[in-house]
């Protein structure tokens, strides 16, 4: 009898906690707290936390020794958001949002950013959700993967999402480089390793690849920055040793990509 009472008390307490949690987070995912991470805004810098085929130590997402999706997180995101606030009229939240393919919550964030996508993989359900996300109007920017092997690994994941997708090289005249800034002369944007190696490339990714996947109407739905590391450029933009030219270019590209995603 006593055990039953204890069990009931635990159950009631659990239900109360669940109700309190639901009240805090039940506002359709946008949050209802005044803390900076819960400020409501039009635009949320959304970083995709994807699963990998390597054993994880972060809720199922990431490498054993580190989370590949969270590279440069959150400093790169927040520095980019500072620039976005200063240079555009986008009403963006000052802090980033991590999104996953576990639930339909991702559909509230029509622009997502993913890094080190050579390590991503998707379950059938995740791939379907990302496919639907992109075909409904979502936009994905991928960054920070280098060389031939990374490309193949990235495409292995991408083929699970969009099996018939064709990747094309973007030209300077493409609209995505002209939404806010006219970016006609682009360069390879290196990661932080440039500071001590002087190399703009990693692995065998000698040439920057500005690539994209389009939908049936010709609109870019996946913007691919291959052989580059824009995230590092944002993250290390305040490092005196990291060249301002790369950082500026990275900010301009990022802003153009966001505005493209918000207009096409």
């Amino acid at each position: 009898m006593k055990c039953t009472h204890i069990a009931l008390a635990i159950l009631a307490a659990s239900a109360g906690c669940a109700a309190l949690w639901a009240q805090r987070t039940g506002d359709f995912g946008f949050g209802n707290d005044d803390s900076p991470t819960n400020v409501k805004a039009e635009f949320y810098w959304s970083r995709l936390a994807y699963s990998t085929n390597i054993a994880s130590n972060f809720g199922g997402y990431g490498h054993r020794w580190r989370s590949s999706w969270s590279r440069d997180y959150p400093k790169a995101d927040r520095q980019f958001l500072i620039a976005m606030h200063r240079l555009t009229r986008i009403d963006g939240r000052p802090t980033e949002q991590v999104v996953t393919l576990d639930s339909d919550e991702i559909f509230n964030y029509p622009w997502i950013y993913a890094v080190q996508v050579e390590s991503w993989t998707f379950s059938e359900k995740e791939a379907k959700r990302l496919r639907e996300y992109l075909l409904k109007g979502g936009f994905l920017m991928v960054d920070d993967f280098h060389g031939t092997e990374d490309w193949e690994n990235f495409m292995n994941g991408m083929r699970l999402v969009l099996p018939d997708a064709e990747v094309e090289d973007l030209q300077s005249g493409d609209e995505i480089f002209h939404t806010l800034y006219d970016i006609d002369d682009k360069m390879q944007i290196p990661g932080e390793q440039y500071v001590w190696t002087g190399r703009t490339y990693e692995k065998d990714g000698y040439q920057p690849k500005w690539r994209a996947i389009r939908d049936s109407k010709g609109r870019i739905i996946v913007a691919i920055c291959h052989n580059m590391h824009l995230g590092d450029a944002w993250e290390w933009a305040d490092d005196p040793n990291y060249p301002e030219t790369f950082a500026s270019m990275a900010f301009r590209v990022g802003l153009d990509y966001i505005l493209y995603g918000m207009t096409h």
């Binding site: 555009t88 109407k217 207009t263 096409h264």
Partner: peptide, 29 residues
Amino acid sequence: GEPRWEYKFIRRAEAEDPTVQLVSMLRTS
């Protein structure tokens, strides 16, 4: 007056309409 999702999705809806052409001006900055 500001970049927002509504703008994008209205444009996408009208892109399917052969009888209406949306001419838009968006204050990006």
